[in-house]
Design a protein around this nucleic acid. Structure first.
Lengths: 371, 371
DNA sequence: GTGAAAGCGCTAACAC
DNA sequence: GTGTTAGCGCTTTCAC
C-alpha cells in the first residue's frame, strides 16, 4: 500500500499551490481552465483521494450521518469464525431439512430485522440524495465500549431507532450533534421524532373488523406488557371498542410475547374456551402462529373467524389465507428520518419536529368474510 | 447546538494539559488516578466526545471500514418524498390487496436484497468485534458523484461487493486503501477475495438429483447469459453431466432472467414439450415461478418431477412443496470479508488471500422422491 | 486567478 | 507522571 498522496503531492506535480488544488476540487469555476486541467491531470495521475479526516477537521463537518440500531442478543452470541486459520474448507455441506411439517411456516428472526433493513435502505437513499454517506451502528450492551459515542464523534447527525440508546446517553449526545428519534414512543420533547400512527390505524382496522363481524367484539391478542408498540395498538383497539359501545370487560384478551409460538398457544386457548368471531393480533408473527393453530384444528379463516395482524412482514402475504395487516412504511421512515435530520442541520435552533407517517392498512383474505 | 467541547476545554476545566486528556482517553493507566478522575469528571461534565476527524487525521487511520453494495435501478427512481412540507398527514391509508390468487407467492425485490442485508449484518458484527465502525455505500450510476471515492477517503479499508465498482475505479482505490472483493467472480489477483463454491455445490446437487431420477438428465433453467453466478452454476451442472456420462446435447436448457415470471414461462415451455424428470434452476426465484406454474397445471412436485433452486432465499422454505436449494452463508460472508480486511490492514504486504466459504445444500421436499 | 499562512482537534514524540 | 510542541491534510481568509 503506497502512502496515499496528499494535496501537497498534487500541488507539486501540477506546479501550483495547495490552495489551488483545494479550489479545483471545491469551486472549479474559480480557477482558470488551464490551471484546472493541470491539477485534474495530477489528481488522476496520482490517484489522489482527499482525506475525509482532514477535510472534516477543516470544514467542521464530516458529511456523514449515523444510523443507530437496537441489537439482538443473538448477534452477540455469534459463533466465532476465523476464516484465515481454516485450511482448505470443504466447498459445501449438506443439510437435510425434511423435518418441518409442510404448511407450518418457520419462525423468522425478530420481526424487526426486516424492518431495520428497509429503514436502512431508505436512510441510505436519502443520505445519498443529500450528498451524505451513512454510517451504521448496532446497539449492544457492552459495558466498556460504546458504539454510539464512537459514532457520535464521526458524524454530523444521528438517527437513533426507538430505544436503542439509554436516555442519559442520548441526552449527552444531543448536546453535540442533532439527534432524530425514529419509531417507538416519543423520548422527551427536545429531539426531532419520526413515527407512525399505531393507535389510529389500529382503531380503523378494528372498525373494519367490527363491520365484518356484525358489531360483535373481536378477541385481542396482545403483546408483552412492556412493549410501547403493543400498548399503542391495544389503545387503538380499545378506542374502537369504546366508539362501538362495547365494554372492555366483554372483550377476550390473550397475552402473547410477539412470537409465533405464543400466537399458537393463544389460538389453542381461544378454541378451548369458545371461538370469537374475530381475532385481532398486536403483531403479525402471533397472528401467523394463530393461523397455523386454527388450520391444524380445522377452524376455517375467514369463514369461522377473522384474523388480523400488524406490521406488514413479508410472511403475512405468503400465509394461507393471506393475512390482513397494517404495513409500516419502512423505506419512508428511513428517508423521513434523514430528511428531518438534514433540516435540523440547516436550522439548528428551530423547535423540535414531530413527523408522523401514515400506516397502510392492507386488507387480505384473512379478515374478509366472503360474500 | 452548543459548540462541541474539545480537548482544550476539558484540559482547562481539569487544570491539566491536553496531552494528559489524550492520555486519559487512550492509556488511562499511564496517568495518576487523581488526575485521571479530574479529567474524567471534566469529560462527563462537558459532554466531551472526541472528534473522529481530528483523531483520524492525527492517527492516520479512521477506525472505519466501508461496505460498498451494488445498487438497484429501483432505488434511483424512488418517488420524491418531502416529509417536512406535508401538512397533517392522514394517519393511515387503506389498501385492498384481495386480487392476488392464493398460492401464487408474490415476486420479491431483487433476490440479492436480502442477501445484502445479511452480509451487512455479518460485516457490522465483525467490524464491531474488532473495534471498527461500518460505513455503507450503495453503487449508483451517477455520472459526476462517486460514492465509492467519497467513502474511500473516509475509511481504512473497503469491502466491495461483486461488480459494484468498475475495474479502473477499483484499481485506483486499491492504491490508497486495502480492498476486499466479496462474492462474484475473481477480479484480478491483486485483491483479497471472499467467495463461495458455486460450481462445486451445483455439481454435488446435480449428483444428488441424478441419484433420485435414476440417472436421467434433468432439464436446466439457466440465468441471463451475462451473469457470472449463472455461468458458474451452469458450469457446475455441466460438470455433473459429464461425470455421469450425459452429453450436454441431451440436456434441455431453458434460459430465464432470474425473475419468477421467467421461471413460470420456462415451466410452461417444458410442459408443452414434454416433462423432464427433474428441473434444476440457476436461482430460487425462477424455481419458485416454475413451481407455481406446475401446480397451476396439476403437475405434482416431487412426484412427477423434481425441482431445485439456488440461493437459499426465505421464500424457498415457504413454498409448497418446500424448495431444495443451496444456501449462501450470508452472515459468514460479511464476517469473513471483514476478517480478511483486518488481516490485510495488519499485514499490508503479504500475498492476496482467496477465501472460499462452503455453501449449504439444503434438501427439501421438492427434490426428494418419496419412498 | 493564485499563493501564503493560520487554523481545525487530536496524537505522539520529546523534554522535564 | 505531566507538559510542550510539531505535525496529520485539508479549507479558507487575506494579500497580491
Amino acid at each position: 500500500m503506497a502512502k496515499a498522496p496528499t494535496v501537497y503531492d498534487v500541488a507539486d506535480r501540477a506546479g501550483v499551490s495547495i490552495a489551488t488544488v483545494s479550489r479545483v476540487l471545491r469551486m472549479p469555476d474559480a480557477v482558470r481552465p488551464v490551471t484546472r486541467d493541470r491539477v485534474l491531470d495530477a489528481v488522476t495521475a496520482l490517484g489522489y483521494v482527499p482525506s475525509g479526516s482532514a477535510r472534516g477537521l477543516a470544514e467542521r463537518r464530516t458529511g456523514v450521518i449515523g444510523l443507530y440500531f437496537p441489537g439482538f442478543d443473538a448477534a452477540e452470541e455469534a459463533p466465532t469464525l476465523d476464516v484465515l486459520s481454516v485450511g482448505a474448507a470443504h466447498p459445501f455441506t449438506i443439510i437435510h431439512d425434511e423435518a418441518a411439517a409442510e404448511g407450518t411456516t418457520p419462525e423468522e428472526g425478530p420481526g424487526s430485522m426486516l424492518f431495520l433493513d428497509e429503514v436502512l435502505r431508505g436512510a441510505e437513499l436519502e443520505a445519498w440524495k443529500q450528498g451524505f454517506v451513512l454510517m451504521v451502528g448496532v446497539g449492544r450492551n457492552d459495558p466498556d465500549r460504546s458504539t454510539v459515542r464512537d459514532m457520535a464523534g464521526r458524524v454530523d447527525g444521528l438517527v437513533v431507532l426507538a430505544s436503542s440508546v439509554p436516555d442519559d446517553v442520548l441526552e449527552r449526545l444531543a448536546v453535540r450533534i442533532p439527534v432524530v428519534v425514529l419509531s417507538g414512543p416519543p423520548r422527551g420533547d427536545s429531539y426531532d421524532h419520526v413515527t407512525v400512527s399505531n393507535t389510529e390505524a389500529m382503531t380503523e382496522l378494528a372498525r373494519l373488523v367490527l363491520e365484518q363481524s356484525g358489531g360483535r367484539a373481536p378477541a385481542f391478542l396482545a403483546g408483552p406488557a412492556d412493549s410501547p408498540d403493543g400498548a399503542q395498538r391495544w389503545q387503538g383497539f380499545s378506542d374502537a371498542m369504546a366508539e362501538a359501545g362495547i365494554a372492555l370487560d366483554d372483550v377476550v384478551v390473550v397475552r402473547g410475547d410477539f412470537t409465533r409460538a405464543s400466537g399458537r398457544r393463544a389460538a389453542e386457548e381461544l378454541m378451548a374456551n369458545g371461538l370469537p368471531l374475530a381475532l385481532m393480533s398486536a403483531n403479525d408473527q402471533m397472528a401467523l402462529g394463530a393461523l397455523d393453530a386454527f388450520r391444524a384444528a380445522g377452524v376455517r379463516v375467514p369463514e369461522d373467524l377473522l384474523v388480523t395482524g400488524f406490521d406488514g412482514i413479508d410472511a403475512a402475504a405468503l400465509s394461507h389465507p393471506r393475512l390482513t395487516t397494517v404495513r409500516q412504511p419502512m423505506i419512508e421512515l428511513g428517508r423521513a428520518a434523514v430528511q428531518v435530520l438534514m433540516n435540523r442541520l440547516e436550522h439548528p435552533d428551530t423547535d423540535p419536529i414531530f413527523v408522523r407517517l401514515p400506516l397502510e392498512i392492507t386488507l387480505r383474505e384473512s379478515s374478509l368474510r366472503r360474500p
